[in-house]
Design a binder for these strands. Structure first.
Lengths: 151, 151
DNA sequence: CTAACTGCAAACCTTTTGCATTGAC
DNA sequence: GTCAATGCAAAAGGTTTGCAGTTAG
């Protein structure tokens, strides 16, 4: 638990980078987000804690984190625009289920994609490092509402 | 069968939209592309056939096609920048294997992801319509070349 | 004929960069 | 103290939009 909580800070230090207050704020936001945040949203939330934090700093911070592999950049299939979203890189790969009805994003667990990696490797010789699997469609609730939907 | 080949033009007409020469050019480019094209590349290639075609027209065309579901928009995990790529929506879902070494994109065949859809549906109640599965890593050739590489 | 489409130019929005200053270690 | 990181402002993509003229159906 505490391992998880401090991972970003720790790994930042481990990479020889400095833990500034601005970065602490961004880390806190990412770690406690209840949904996926795009850069602008991170910026706006960060500014509430430090009105002087600059947009460029947030972008640089997210870029740095991404290069270090601390966060992943997603676009969630552009279902809600062309923004890019950031999430802490999970220890285990997970899917994103993006509902085109309500825009909600589910991340069901499981580990059956492990076999996808080996299947791809066996069939093509390509060695997958990072997997991104997104599915858009209708969530249970939205399907319920429009029960006359096709397919 | 011929339905398939002319699908873009036909479906455009079916939607009550006009098949202009500019759109014909874009369709031709997408249908005959040997790699994934971003909007700017489509524009530059289109301009070779019609030097007067305007960038905005290409963007509008791609946007229209996307809204109609004729093409899909990809970002190929931003391995080669933040551009968006367009491909004709395939009748069968396929994976993109993006090599971080040489930037090549493979699209292996197969249909084993069908079971992913049903597995997701069974486990979560979410009904996937469009699947996007991308894996970045090293292709066979690049793995061969740098056998001493870290990563 | 006329609504859809295009070319043009300017605006827009998100992200990046050069530089002087600040601050973490 | 030193070098990384920040704030600032300006630029740099990439994409969109209002409008007048053109064109497919």
């Amino acid at each position: 638990m505490s391992v998880r909580r401090n991972s970003l800070s720790d790994r930042l230090r481990a990479a020889g980078l400095r833990l500034t207050n601005q970065r602490r704020i961004v880390i806190h936001l990412l770690e406690n987000a209840d949904r996926h945040l795009d850069a602008e949203k991170v910026f706006r939330l960060a500014r509430r804690k430090d009105p002087n934090i600059h947009r460029a700093t947030v972008y640089r911070t997210l870029s740095t984190f991404k290069k270090l592999g601390l966060v992943d950049e997603l676009d969630l299939m552009h279902v809600s625009g062309d923004r890019h979203y950031y999430e802490i890189r999970p220890s285990t790969f997970h899917i994103h289920l993006i509902c085109t009805g309500c825009g909600s994003v589910q991340e069901p667990g499981g580990s059956w994609w492990q076999e996808m990696k080996s299947r791809v490797y066996d069939e093509t010789g390509f060695k997958p490092e990072i997997i991104r699997l997104e599915m858009s469609g209708l969530c249970k609730a939205c399907r319920g509402e429009k029960s006359e939907s096709p397919t």
